[in-house]
Write a protein that binds this DNA or RNA. Structure first.
Lengths: 64, 64
DNA sequence: GAATTATGTCAAGTATATTTTACATTTTGC
DNA sequence: GCAAAATGTAAAATATACTTGACATAATTC
């Protein structure tokens, strides 16, 4: 399912997918796919994304 | 680096690596490797581990 | 102290995360 | 309206997460 919290957190920092991708050392497509929700990133990438967006894992990736 | 919080949380539930692996639908070696710290599991597996151990991502996998 | 159970680890194979290249569509600023 | 920037998406290649099978050692239990 879509990760709207990620999309919102990125928007809050005014970062494009590409800018976030650069901060995390991954490709733009990877960020796009994660937001789109049709895949399963590694925890290290999730942590890199969280740090770039000043969020924690629970805030962006935890679901009850 | 070693994930001692995971090891401790598993011990607190009195689960062997193999029992936790079964709960998460992965192999025992995968759990062992994650505790040992020499790899980078996917977020879905981290979430499965957290749920099996009644913890959240931040509690087991977040590092400042 | 022998037998189970739990853990560490390794090598080879399979599944899948991620990259690269590329093109189409949408959004935004002028 | 146009140009540029941002996003969606897809196919093929590469890197790596994860499995399977196997053996060794440490810890538990009888």
């Amino acid at each position: 399912m879509k990760n709207l919290r990620l999309k919102a957190a990125r928007a809050a920092k005014d970062l494009s997918q590409e800018a976030l991708a650069d901060l995390c050392d991954v490709s733009r497509q990877t960020i796009s796919a994660i937001e789109k929700g049709d895949y399963n990133p590694t925890i290290n990438l999730c942590i890199a994304i969280c740090k770039a967006l000043d969020k924690t894992l629970d805030e962006l990736f935890w679901e009850e």
